[in-house]
Design a protein around this nucleic acid. Structure first.
Lengths: 117, 117
DNA sequence: GCTAGTGTTTCGGATAACGAAACACAAGGA
DNA sequence: TCCTTGTGTTTCGTTATCCGAAACACTAGC
């Protein structure tokens, strides 16, 4: 399975539309999470493994390769870190974090109502 | 594999932090894409299959169940559609679309430079 | 030359996704 | 009525992906 890149056909879309490539890339297990863990500074591979309970090293390195090939992260002396492009992505993902909070509140309320019924 | 829900432990995180649940839920194949296709109105199951080339019906229904269980989409007479919560998610994902565009431009430029070298 | 810490790859077994077929149910026409 | 055609949905064998533990390579300090 090739790494999805904008401008080339990706899994599920022959148009190569950037958002399609992005959704293929980020719709792979742990991809979003790895970005999240790198949000506030560089981390080494073993540090990433420690933070992502259940992530296997083989998948980690596959994701690191994919994200590196797409210019989102880069290896430095301190480990892997977000490139400027990756930093922009982190900012673009921030509304998702905010949404997740309201999501949690909504679901809590729904669960309570279901329990009462 | 249980559907990740905010407030409960999810794959890769025992804290149940909402963003972790969200990343587990959306880090599954086609989950983001299905939301994207529903962004501008309800679609039936077969319409979704037609738009997502390569998506199999078995996975589609699994994702539809997961998204429905989390109150993000709901079945109506016209097919599946975003709930208010899902609409908020769509808006939260909009910066990602914008980012993908700049991503594509950056990668094009990099590819051109690589080709020249 | 040992130990301990990195980064990274390998490989067998387990899990998730594909892909095609089938089932159930409506609505419309011959 | 029977047949088609369109839905939504489930099943199941095959294939791809992921897990998990182990190992390899390299560096630094003792």
């Amino acid at each position: 399975m090739p790494t999805p890149r904008p401008g080339t056909p990706v899994r599920g879309s022959t148009t190569g539309r950037p958002i399609m490539a992005a959704m293929d890339l980020f719709g792979r297990r742990w991809a979003l999470r790895i970005l999240w863990e790198l949000r506030s500074g560089p981390l080494g591979a073993r540090a990433l493994l420690a933070r992502c309970e259940g992530l296997s090293s083989s998948v980690l390195y596959q994701r690191l390769r994919e994200l590196t090939a797409n210019g989102i992260i880069a290896a430095s002396a301190d480990g892997y870190e977000l490139t400027p492009l990756g930093a922009a992505l982190r900012d673009a993902l921030q509304p998702l974090d905010a949404w997740a909070t309201t999501w949690a509140e909504t679901q809590e309320r729904n669960d309570r109502i279901s329990a009462e019924a």
